[in-house]
Simulated assay, not measured.
Amino acid sequence: MLRGYYTAASGMMAQQRRQESLSNNIANAQTPGFKQDQTSIRAFPELLIKRMESNELSTANGFRAPKNKTIGSINTGVYLQETIPDYAQGGLKDTGIATDMALINGTLPDETGSIFFTVQNAAGEERYTRNGNFTVDGAGFLTTNQGYYVLDNDGNPIATGGQTFSVSSNGIIQVDGQEIPLAINYSPNANDMVKDDENLFAMSEDGAAMEDARATAGLSYTVQQKYLENSNVDAVQTMTDMMRAYRMFETNQKVLQAYDQSMDKAVNQIARLT
């Protein structure tokens, strides 16, 4: 019976973590370039139960030979194994603002691949994003809304001097007769990336190195100026999943209450001395 407590409790904890992930998705439904998280729930490893006994042999010393009989396997519940970003393309929104840019996937050579803008975070490290909601800071550099520099193909901040510039379909910024290629990188397996703060992605330690999107064979994309890529969160589906997670949490809670009532009877009624 105690094992039932742990099984029901693990189900409640898994649904609670799933609800947290879904809540984060719905909270970012209007965040440009946001990629929703998908959760993976997995059962704990099964346990094999054996009955351990022994047979007494007719010997002078009364030797007992051990004997095991397999009863079967049991499962001890579930847990939320991981959250995986969904890199599907979001819809486009026309903003009419020159500093806004949207990355549009074309042909990707790898099924799990994805392309990103490259920025520099506060620690000077390269990070990657699909959020093209850029702006120009007081020094004339192109930045994210958090103030992180947008990088060019050489890894340097891009100086536009203002919002009077154009961006070609392959990501070349044209300002005052100068051409500055945006750093657009490609990950052959975007599942190797991990989410960082401020809607940014970082490469995991064992992930494949990022590639220059312009130099990757079989890759095509388009940069659309004055547009933003919307979040790929389906608000209606996410709300439905949140209700389902709540119902499953509630079901496990009722199972836990039933075990508690059975234990109460076992301790206070069945075991009562008369």
Rank of each mutant, 00 (worst) to 15 (best):
A9M: 09
G11K: 08
A14C: 05
Q15Y: 08
Q15V: 04
Q16E: 09
R17S: 11
E20C: 02
S23L: 12
N24G: 04
Q30S: 14
Q36P: 02
Q36H: 11
Q36E: 12
Q38W: 05
Q38L: 09
Q38V: 09
F44Q: 07
P45M: 02
L47C: 00
R51Q: 15
E53Q: 15
R64P: 06
N68D: 12
I71Y: 09
G72A: 08
S73H: 14
Y79I: 03
L80A: 07
E82K: 03
G91T: 13
L92A: 13
K93M: 09
K93V: 13
I97Q: 10
D100K: 10
M101I: 13
A102N: 11
I104S: 05
L108T: 15
D110C: 06
G113P: 11
I115R: 09
T118E: 11
V119T: 14
Q120F: 06
A122G: 10
E126T: 13
T135L: 02
V136L: 05
D137W: 10
G140K: 03
T144R: 01
V150S: 02
G161D: 06
T164C: 00
T164H: 01
V167R: 01
N170H: 08
G171N: 07
G171T: 11
I173D: 04
I184C: 02
P188N: 03
N189Y: 03
M193A: 09
D196Q: 08
D197W: 03
L200Y: 06
F201I: 04
M203R: 06
S204C: 05
D206H: 01
D206K: 01
M210P: 11
E211Y: 14
D212T: 13
T216Q: 14
G218S: 10
L219N: 10
L219I: 11
S220F: 10
S220H: 13
Y221N: 10
T222Q: 15
L228M: 11
E229Y: 13
Q237P: 01
M239L: 12
T240C: 00
T240M: 00
R244D: 10
R247C: 01
K254G: 00
V255D: 01
L256G: 03
S262M: 08
M263C: 00
N268C: 09
Q269R: 12
Q269I: 09
I270Q: 10
A271P: 04
L273T: 15
L273D: 15
